[in-house]
Nucleic acid binder design. Structure first.
Length: 469
DNA sequence: AAAAAAG
């Protein structure tokens, strides 16, 4: 299949080939014809699947022949950075097409507000907005959507997580009833279904996304006490090759603390979170993309959608509260057919959360032994039972970081894609069917045995849960 | 149980 198959306008095809687009991704192959046929669409897909182009290209093809005096398309996205990025991607094509787009989001000073107003007065074909500012502009009467033809909700699940349900409904009340609506979401929880029923008409459905990280990502974890995180972080930064790295933490406070440490260490790092001025956020991201800054310490505001080349390493200082966020965090590496490493530090409190991630992605992530300088860590026992005090398995030999057991660890890195974990644990070879919703209740094999840490008896633990209903 | 987004 090629882009020629879609009967795109010559100008768009020229643009595509000069930008190096050759072959549609799976989601593009499925979504583009449906969108061209004016169907509403629910698409389960993550970033990194070519999702943005999947809706932008057919919309651009239609906008080419539309009346350029009116706003034609509204894209709503959860974060400002994502809105910017979508806008930039559109600009890339617009260059060839004479189609215009405006990003609209808050956080700037008064000047930004005025700029956006002015830009809107000049008119544009496509507007990419975050909900808050959009509502403000609608309420002020600055934006008129009387002739809108397309509405896109990007990362819809994320937006609902962030409490935007009412805002979205409010925005939709300003839109013409007759329009094409496209909803993209990484997951399909009931709330998304409800929203879809409310705002879509006889939608087609596509399901591309498997909550499964790209094949090029080598995933690893260390089971640690809090006090050991620093030493392990250092070790990882030293032993895994990287040019640009993102270190994720779940709270702004943690990000700020880490930043202080990094600055003291003289590292070329910047913190990234929502307490920063928007201008600063933009400047930092720009510097990171330019490689003037090579380390970013960020909250989950960075975890979705941000596409920066050359991030070969992602470190999770902690386990994200929402398992989906894990997939998004590590998806910042290994973009565009490259490979990358994702390392997660798991303390005692986070073990259950990490286990639910392993369940979600249906694979067991290897727990590496701690480097000697970090000392000995706790065991990985996410399914901890309330043991009657005294017995239980205690710690005998079950330590992933078990002393002296480091043989052959270094080779974990830089492994070619496809055998990321180097063991059978990645039981994911199927095309990604998620029939496997079971939730094992039993304690798994864990790291018992202290043998080859890459593959400790987890498989065995998994087979048991058939009986559990 | 945390972040983000309007000001």
């Amino acid at each position: 299949m090629t882009f020629e198959d879609f009967n795109f306008d010559e100008k768009l095809l020229d643009g595509l080939s000069s930008m190096g687009y050759t072959k549609p991704t799976p989601i593009q192959g499925q979504a583009i014809p449906m969108i061209l046929e004016n169907h509403d669409l629910i698409a389960c897909a993550q970033t990194g699947t070519g999702k943005t182009a999947a809706y932008i290209l057919p919309i651009l093809n239609k906008v080419l022949h539309a009346d350029h005096r009116h706003l034609n398309t509204l894209v709503i996205a959860p974060t400002r950075e994502l809105a910017q990025q979508i806008d930039q991607q559109i600009e890339g094509f617009a260059y060839f097409l004479g189609v215009s787009s405006i990003p609209v989001y808050g956080g700037g000073d008064g000047a930004t507000w005025d700029q956006q107003r002015k830009a809107l007065e000049q008119g544009a074909d496509i507007i990419i907005a975050t909900p808050g500012r959009l509502i403000a502009l609608l309420a002020a009467g600055t934006i008129k959507f009387d002739h809108l033809e397309h509405l896109v909700l990007d990362e819809a699940d994320r937006m609902l997580d962030m409490g935007f349900y009412d805002d979205i409904v409010k925005i939709i009340n300003y839109l013409p009833k007759k329009r094409q609506t496209l909803l993209f979401s990484a997951t399909m929880p009931p709330k998304i279904r409800m929203l879809a029923n409310k705002i879509l008409t006889e939608p087609k459905e596509i399901n591309i996304a498997i909550a499964k990280p790209a094949a090029g990502i080598l995933q690893q974890a260390y089971v640690v006490h809090d006090a050991q995180k620093g030493a392990v972080l250092k070790h990882v930064l030293k032993t895994v090759p990287w040019k640009s790295v993102i270190i994720f933490a779940s709270t702004k406070e943690t990000v700020k603390k880490l930043d202080v440490v990094f600055q003291k260490g003289g590292l070329n790092a910047r913190a990234f979170h929502s307490d920063l001025e928007q201008q600063e956020r933009e400047e930092i991201l720009r510097a990171f993309k330019n490689k003037q800054v090579n380390m970013l310490i960020g909250t989950d505001v960075l975890s979705r959608g941000i596409d920066v080349e050359g991030i070969s390493l992602v470190i999770n200082w902690d386990v994200p509260p929402d398992p989906e966020d894990y997939v998004h965090r590590i998806g910042r590496t290994a973009r565009a057919e490259t490979t990358g490493t994702a390392v997660t530090l798991i303390n005692e409190r986070d073990q259950r959360k990490f286990y639910s991630i392993e369940t979600l992605i249906d694979s067991v992530i290897p727990k590496l032994p701690l480097p000697p300088e970090a000392g000995e860590g706790p065991a990985y026992e996410p399914q901890k039972k309330k043991n009657i005090s005294g017995h239980g398995r205690g710690g005998g030999g079950g330590r992933p970081g078990g002393g002296g057991r480091r043989g052959g660890q270094g080779q974990g890195h830089g492994r070619p894609r496809g055998e990321a974990n180097g063991n059978g644990a990645n039981a994911n070879a199927n095309g990604g069917e998620k029939s496997d919703r079971r939730r094992p209740k039993r304690r798994r094999g864990g790291n018992r045995g202290g043998g080859d840490n890459r593959n400790t008896g987890n498989a065995g633990g998994n087979t048991e849960n058939k009986g559990a209903a």
